[in-house]
């Protein structure tokens, strides 16, 4: 564990890189002792800093939820990050790319919780019971590291490459759809660029929330009622540039679109 002063220094560096935005050297190269827990300690400090600035926490996100990404990073559980209210854009909006370095988009399922969830081992049923509704989401990722090259502690400190996210399409009650088999087709400027089934996320996106709640429990916390949870990209992450239009169609959940300016 790095000392408090070092963690503060890293936090300031990440906050500046995100706000500018600009890239920074991989954190573990500068701070070889940085581990996963340090990464989350940086996230906690980022959150405190952003709350001080008057920003609001709106939810949490899971990342590295596909088997391919987990194997690539050598991990067996997702990484988690925080979502601020002012990073949620309405569907159909135009997202300015000047505020982004090298954005990529992923399609996924968002959960909106109605009840608080806590404990070491909540079941899928408990997750579904505590869910208000599920909805299509597009996450706009933007690593603050060159070419999205990072290791686990660095990406966690960078809040899981979180930049912005969009929710829209048709909300569904979680019990009224089979969340293992929602087909998703992503088109970039009219051409199919990515496809997936919602089960690409750990077999069922509610498993992301199960693991999130267990992880929160280990830190003495719960998942608050009203939280939005992004359960992790089901599709590959696709690079976008100014004037690109992205649309994702979901089986029985409508579609969601966003453009880049």
């Amino acid at each position: 564990m790095l000392d408090s002063a070092t963690l503060d220094r890293i936090t300031a560096q990440v906050a500046t890189a995100q706000a500018a935005p600009h890239t920074m050297p991989k954190l573990t190269e500068v701070y070889p002792g940085l581990d996963v827990e340090d990464g989350y300690a940086v996230q906690d400090r980022l959150l405190a800093r952003w709350l001080d600035e008057g920003r609001e926490l709106i939810g949490l996100k899971a990342g590295l939820t596909s088997k391919a990404k987990m194997e690539q990073m050598g991990v067996s559980e997702p990484s988690f990050g925080i979502l601020m209210r002012d990073t949620l854009d309405p569907e159909g909006s135009i997202i300015p790319t000047q505020c982004l370095i090298h954005p990529r988009v992923e399609a996924e399922i968002a959960f909106v919780m109605k009840d608080e969830l806590g404990g070491p081992e909540v079941s899928i049923d408990q997750v579904l019971d505590a869910t208000d509704f599920v909805q299509p989401a597009i996450e706009i990722l933007d690593s603050r590291f060159e070419k999205f090259k990072f290791d686990l502690p660095s990406v966690i400190a960078d809040n899981g490459s979180s930049a912005r996210f969009v929710m829209g399409g048709r909300p569904r009650r979680a019990r009224n759809v089979d969340l293992r088999t929602i087909g998703m087709v992503m088109e970039l400027n009219g051409e199919i660029v990515a496809m997936a089934s919602s089960g690409a996320v750990l077999g069922h996106p509610a498993r992301s929330i199960q693991m999130l709640v267990a992880w929160l429990h280990g830190r003495g916390r719960t998942l608050p009622a009203g939280s939005i949870v992004l359960t992790g990209g089901a599709t590959a992450a696709i690079a976008v540039k100014p004037d690109d239009a992205v649309i994702v169609r979901y089986q029985d959940m409508g579609e969601i679109s966003v453009r880049f300016g």
Partner: peptide, 24 residues
């Protein structure tokens, strides 16, 4: 059914192992 958007999950020995969609 919307065959273009029908999602597929394959489990092997109880573990998720592949996914896809009709549009493929």
């Amino acid at each position: 059914v919307d065959l273009t958007l029908a999602g597929l999950l394959v489990e092997m020995n109880g573990e998720p192992c592949a996914d896809g969609v009709g549009a493929a």
